[in-house]
Structures are given as C-alpha cells and as structure tokens.
Design a protein around this nucleic acid. Structure first.
Lengths: 198, 198
DNA sequence: TCGCAAACTAGAACAGATTCTAATAGCTGT
DNA sequence: ACAGCTATTAGAATCTGTTCTAGTTTGCGA
C-alpha cells in the first residue's frame, strides 16, 4: 500500500542498501522478462537477489511495489533515451507520437515483461507514478519543455488522455489484438486531434 | 483463461445446469457488491450458492471468469437503459459525453462492483465484448445509428480512443484519484476533439 | 570498546486461489 | 434392473503472496 521509504524509516539510504535494492529490482526484472509476473515469485526474487524473504518485504512491502519499481526503471530508460535523442518532428502532435511509438517499440522487445508490467500497473491499488510520468513526458516533448507544474489544467487533461489511449492500445497489442501499424494509426489520429492546439 | 463452455463439454446445457450457473453468478454478485472482489472468495461463493468448490470451478475455471460473468450482467443493464432513453444532445460529441457520463453514474452506484468490472475488463485474457460494445454504442449514438460494420476505420479508431479515455478515467475515480467533475471535464475535452468531425 | 537499535536471516505460519482425490448421485441407453 | 457415463460432493493438498518469530549481524554514537 505504501511507496517504499528506505528501510530505516527516517535516515538516508546507505550505499549498501542502495545496492541491495538495485540487486532486488534487477533480479525481479530478469525473472519477469521470462515468464511474466507469475515467474516473478517473491521467494524466487529473494533467492536470486541473495536476500531473505523478510528483507525483500522490508524493501518492497508488496509484490506490486516491486513491479512498480521495475517499471520505474523502464521509464527511466525511455526518458534518458528521449533526452539523448529528442524527437525532431515539427508539430507537437507528431513529437508526441514519436515518443509513444518509441516507447512501444521498447516495450515490444520484452513482451512478457511489458505485458506483466502494464497489466499489473493498471490493476494496482497503489499510486503509481507511471501515468503522471508519461503525461509529463508528453507535455515536455510536445509543448517544448513545458512541465507538469507550469501546464494549464486543460493541457494536462489532454496529455493524460493521449497517455490513456496509448496504454490501452499497448494492452490490446500485447493481447494480440492489434498490430504495431494499427497502434501507430490510432495514436496518430488521437494525437492529431488531442494535441492540435496544445 | 478459457470462456465457460457448459460443463459436459459437447452437449447442450440443461435447465438445472442453467439454474446452478445463475445461482452462482447471483451469489458472486451479492458478495462483490459488498466487499468487492476480495469479499468474493471462491469458497464463500460456493457455499452461498450451495455447490461444492469443485463444482464452482467446473462452471468457472477461474475467479476471473466468474467476475466476467457478473460483469456481463451489469453491462446488459447499462446498454438497455441507454437504448431505452437515448441521449438528446445536439452534437455528436455531446451525445457521446452524455452516454459516458450516464454510464459513469450508473457504475458509481455500486463502486465495489464497478471496480471489479473495470479491472476485469482490462485484464481479461478472454475477449470481453465490452470494449467493442461501448465503441459501437458511442458510434451509434454520436453518428446517429452508425453501426460498427458501416463505420469507416478512422471513425472506429476515434470511438475506441474515447472509450479508452473513459475507462482509464473511471479507474482513476474508483481509486479515489478523480472526482466526478474532473472526469466530466476530461471526457468533454477529449470528446470535443476526437469527435469533432466524426 | 560497549551497547543498542535497526537490519538481516532462516524458516515456520497463514490466507486464499486452484487442483486433486475418492466416493456418491443421477441420468441414459439397453 | 444394469452398465457406463458425467456431474457433484467433501475435503485434503498444493501453490504463492504475505506475515510472524526468534535469533544473529551490523553500524554507530557514547
């Protein structure tokens, strides 16, 4: 239910705790990229990361928290990729499409992981930074550096909507009900309209 | 994972099997409309429906299948209500908004059940007719009688996108992260753009 | 260095979904 | 009435997420 404050409660996370946390997330990601969430069993993750089950639960109070952490890393990758090579298209809508399709291709590379992560996140009871981060990324890229704080409410609404459309399309694709081209067409259509006057 | 063919495998479902199935679904719905999915425990459902656990699993191979069945009944209600009293607004976009907000209010009445509904929709492996039905309903209502078969692909895309936005907003609401008014604002903004030239 | 609080560990315990088993009940065709 | 089949039942068993326990290790301020 909670996010994941460092174990101690009040103090700063030490280096070794940071390492441990990282090892756990990596082990989890490795397992998930094979058999999906069900292969990512808490006992197995703990074993693989070389920590006790209780320790795993100290770092990640629930499996969902762990999933969220794994997803967080994926988004980090996307963000740094965008930073490294920003979309060069000329309209806000096409820059947004660029980002989303790049993310789509990234996730397609590990379909099991993607499927597991997307599903879990959508079902998550916990507050996940996922939606907000994607929304912020879209705004930044579409409206040239606009941040979530500076954006007008209606701009946030529209970026959020585009993000929703994308997530749903991604899910459909992972279910085998959409091709990459279909997603692209739909995202382009939605972005062109939603971001027309952003 | 599977749909739910009648127990026997090949033969027609008998009356008593039909009754049994119905009792199970009713018991499940009753439990879910209180504590949500977690209150709807398989043992409890079986007990409440007066069948053995094994029998419950013969009818519904997984809890999700049971949820989907419960949800199916709710969707029927929703659709027939909308057909009984069609939205009277003047623009396609506002008729679509009308439908979606009516559905929203309907679902708000049983939040626990709604939560289960939306979640199951999103993660169902099985093809739930819901997405298509909602898309079709939106098209029909917005473009005055247009059916899924007659619609152009781009129209279906846009209606599908609006449906995605709605589902995501609904989920956020059920998580307590959106108010009704926020949803309305977002749906109106999205519909106005997506359905502008439908 | 001492001592304490927090972190860690192995493993048992618990909970709820799902599966399995052995036995019984009910129907169908002969 | 009988044989053979499927449905059903009670209950045990299994699997995995989560919690709990009791004891050990570690970091660190006095």
């Amino acid at each position: 239910m909670e996010s994941h404050p460092p174990p101690g409660g009040h103090s700063v996370r030490t280096r070794s705790q940071h390492q441990r946390r990282k090892r756990i997330v990596q082990a989890a990601a490795a397992l998930a990229s094979r058999g999906g969430v069900e292969a990512m069993q808490m006992r197995t993750v703990a074993e693989r990361a070389g920590v006790a089950l209780g320790t795993l639960y100290r770092y990640f109070p629930s499996k969902m928290d762990l999933v969220v952490a794994v997803v967080g890393e994926e988004i980090d990758l996307l963000e740094s990729s965008i930073e490294r090579r920003p979309p060069g298209a000329t309209t806000p809508a096409s820059r947004a499409v660029d980002v989303l399709m790049r993310a789509t291709r990234g996730l397609m590379r590990e379909p099991e992981l993607a499927d597991a992560l997307i599903r879990s996140l959508i079902l998550a009871e916990v507050q996940t930074p996922f939606g907000d981060r994607m929304t912020g990324l879209l705004l930044r890229v579409a409206a040239d550096g606009l941040t979530l704080e500076d954006a007008r409410e209606d701009q946030i609404d529209l970026a959020g909507s585009l993000s929703s459309v994308w997530v749903q399309e991604l899910l459909e694709m992972l279910r085998g009900r959409r091709t990459y081209d279909q997603i692209q067409r739909r995202i382009e259509a939605a972005a062109a309209r939603l971001f027309a006057d952003i």
